[in-house]
Design a protein around this nucleic acid. Structure first.
Lengths: 284, 284
DNA sequence: CGTAGGGTTGACAGCTTTCAAGAAGTGTGG
DNA sequence: CCACACTTCTTGAAAGCTGTCAACCCTACG
């Protein structure tokens, strides 16, 4: 028991289930979620709210794609199981995230979605989904925005992996979670992880023991206080700095790169190579 | 000079620029590309074909998103430059891939797109893009399919990283390229890489020297013949096997898991407890 | 012909993975 | 209510792989 949050310092993790007051709306209009909730209550046309108990699987990998879902509350992990049985956690879906969209092109879900806690989703059968897209402009717009956001998030995810050092990955992951939490009006400082170390490890592409050690390292540095799944970010800025440590900058000079449509290429200032690893300020 | 393809065994790398004969159409209809090419030739309404010379940047990271693009021919890399100047290659876009879509939600491109060879794209200004979506059902459908495919591809990409071993990552990457090549009617065996080692390395999250060594390893194993950027897959099955090597399978038995539509969640394999009794499938 | 960039190798330090084992937390059954 | 069973989380130690630094070969290009 170390890196432990004081026993006498109980933390209450706020977790509003109601729409947060300040959800930054997609540029022009409503959030997809808002739109879904505002849909006219036509009998039978109302998108189904479905409760998903913790541990149950909402979408099965490889199953025929018949519906897409939007997470209303709770947390899901999307998992792809390799032929060898290895489970790779692709990501975690939270309020407002789309699930099952990867199945539209191929007709089969490319990954499974499993609830990590008791959750609620909007279920949109394909038929209804298509209909809504064509008849409800607001829905369509919100959907496009959500899709685009999902795409950007996929990119963020890819960034997670670009940090080679395990602790940098973990730092990024925590910052990512923190950002998403505050997006939903919850504390950006105090996180209650809904996934276990193994799932985090799989997501980050490291061994779960390494995740443990990385938590320890970040805690020793004074960035975090960790008590099992309860994580408090003490030094956000420090964590951010630590997360920025990537491999050395590309010595590959960005060449000329003729801007296709006029604008000029942005000079990327390269030149930082920080290897903060051993240098422990902690002298206990 | 090793792992070298015999000098007397010149390889011609087919590279049809014309639509391949057997592009597996998105389930119901046309490919996005097909639809774009078939659009009525309204003066001014015709989506712009734009040439993009090798090395030039089509979309700038952080620039205001004014258009989305569809790759017609050639290859692009999408790159995100870290604050420290490190360039992370998120992926490579080829014929039929979308570019710039990540910018719709935020209004700014989340990553840059640079041509690795002389390429051609369809440019769709946002206004035209929106208009097409609303007025051309076929376009809309093709777009949705393309988006979904893009999403699945993001997942595949994430799988790349799940392979811890560098050579497994490279093997997967090559298989991925091979698959995409054959999708477009080109040889699945003979690849002409359009990116250099450093770019591959960044994409896979390893050092470029490691990529070199991994090529060597795969060649020594007899899976490949490598001559600089020319790669011939000799033993596809072997390569596939090698690529499957992940970390040890999750000891977490894959259990079954009740489809949500039914009722109660089954034994939660992972950390979450299943409490709510078979509770209502739908609440509200 | 000389330079520059790309690709390959070698050596070594360092971080990660593995294998093992112990501590904590949770749920079940008596 | 407590004990037992199980899973999760944390550590330790040794082995292995990867990153980094350097050097060398090759091709393209001025």
């Amino acid at each position: 028991m170390l890196h432990t949050i004081s026993d006498r310092d109980p933390i209450l993790y706020a977790q509003p289930m109601r729409p947060a007051a300040s959800v930054p709306a997609a540029q022009a209009g409503q959030t997809l979620l808002q739109r879904l909730q505002a849909l006219p209550e036509l009998p039978g046309a109302q998108p189904l709210r479905q409760r998903v108990p913790a541990g149950s699987i909402l979408l099965h990998e490889g199953a025929q794609a018949r519906q897409v879902c939007v997470v209303l509350a709770g947390t899901f992990k999307s998992v792809k199981t390799g032929d060898d049985g290895y489970e790779h956690v692709l990501g975690f879906a939270m309020r407002g995230d789309l699930l099952g969209f990867d199945g539209l092109a191929s007709g089969r879900y490319a990954s499974a979605a499993m609830a990590l806690e008791d959750s609620v989703v909007f279920v949109l059968p394909l038929r209804q989904y298509d209909q809504l897209r064509h008849t409800d402009a607001q829905f369509d717009q919100a959907l496009q925005a959500a899709l685009s956001r999902q795409m950007s998030r996929a990119i963020e995810l890819a960034e997670l992996m670009s940090a080679v050092a395990a602790d940098a990955r973990l730092a990024r992951f925590l910052l990512y979670l923190s950002a998403r939490m505050s997006e939903h009006g919850m504390s950006a400082r105090r996180l209650l992880l809904r996934m276990n170390r193994r799932e985090i490890a799989s997501h980050l592409g490291v061994a779960h023991e390494t995740v443990s050690r990385s938590f320890g390292l970040l805690a020793d540095r004074g960035y975090l206080r960790v008590d099992n799944r309860a994580v408090e970010i003490v030094d956000l800025e420090g964590l951010r700095v630590h997360a920025h440590c990537t491999r050395g900058p590309a010595e590959d000079a960005p060449k000329d790169a003729a801007p296709v449509s006029g604008a000029a290429a942005r000079p990327s200032s390269s030149g930082t190579r920080v290897r903060l690893r051993a240098a422990a300020p902690a002298l206990d």
